[in-house]
Design a protein around this nucleic acid. Structure first.
Lengths: 155, 155
DNA sequence: GATTATGATATACATAATGACCAGTGGAAC
DNA sequence: GTTCCACTGGTCATTATGTATATCATAATC
């Protein structure tokens, strides 16, 4: 269940240079190939490492504008709203958060003008009471999780 | 620059089964290996595919609690605050945003109690004026970008 | 209509990684 | 002391990889 130092080092290596295979990793880490393989299998089995899917850049795909929208949902409409939101490709992520049954959405758009259209499509649904949007200007700290593995290994 | 249908199919395949190599991908997509290789190279060169780093699950690492905090920053203290935030491992992501909050942060914690400690550490810094926290309860739509590639390919 | 690019295909080759084994070793737990 | 477990270091056949090549159809350019 817990990750140890070797796990953390392996994760870090894979994060920095995903192209290294099991072979190269074993050399870098100074352990046997079988060990790396076993650790990797375990990390994946434990769910710590979900996979190695491609990390896509919305900006490079033509969606340079990111925004966060909070939606206030009418009582009992949550399920329907979710299903609706799932159909909008520009919606990258949605969390339900504390508050009055609110949802926090991460959305992207091709431009600020397009953002308006996306939001219109997003909230054009019965059960969405009120919305509030923050446009992301800069992303000084992009999504990162590796340092958590280090932290978890240290404790 | 633009992605086409084949690119989208390739991305989708890689997303669903990251373990497939170039060889297997070419078989699945019904194109020559060299083609897949060329497409992959181009996608990476264009920045559409950033890489294939491991996708880590904070929950499996022992951080099941996610929260979003908006920080209001005193004028001129932005740079310092950023540097401070970067040192907190539980801070996974930070955006500067429009609106009353100046920065939006995604943070994780080991428990609701621990969340309080994390936030304390986070905001214990000169220049952070006001904070507001939303605790994420559920994540019905986890981060997804693949469908954007589809959308981009269709247009 | 002729000429160029472009991207896909097909093929080849040397190198290297992979998955699968297995016997041996050390430490920790019982 | 014995058992268990993870790590080691090695082999093996299979397969993928990076790289390079020539060919071909298509589309764009002049």
């Amino acid at each position: 269940m817990a990750v140890d130092e070797l796990d953390a080092r392996l994760i870090r290596l894979l994060d920095e240079e995903p192209r290294v295979g099991v072979m190269e990793a074993s050399r870098r880490l100074g352990v046997a190939r079988g060990t790396v393989q076993a650790r990797l299998d375990r990390l994946q089995a434990d769910g710590v490492v979900r996979g190695f899917g491609p990390q896509l850049d919305p900006e490079a795909l033509g969606y340079p504008v990111t925004a966060f929208a909070t939606l206030e949902i009418a009582q009992g409409r949550g399920r329907d709203v979710r299903a609706h939101l799932a159909t909008v490709p520009e919606l990258l992520e949605m969390h339900t958060v504390t508050g009055s049954g609110d949802m926090l959405c991460r959305i992207v758009a091709r431009s600020n003008l397009d953002l308006q259209h996306v939001i219109d499509r997003l909230i054009d649904f019965d059960g969405i009471v009120r919305t509030s949007t923050m446009i992301a200007m800069e992303n000084p700290i992009p999504l990162r999780v590796v340092q958590l593995a280090q932290a978890a290994a240290s404790s």
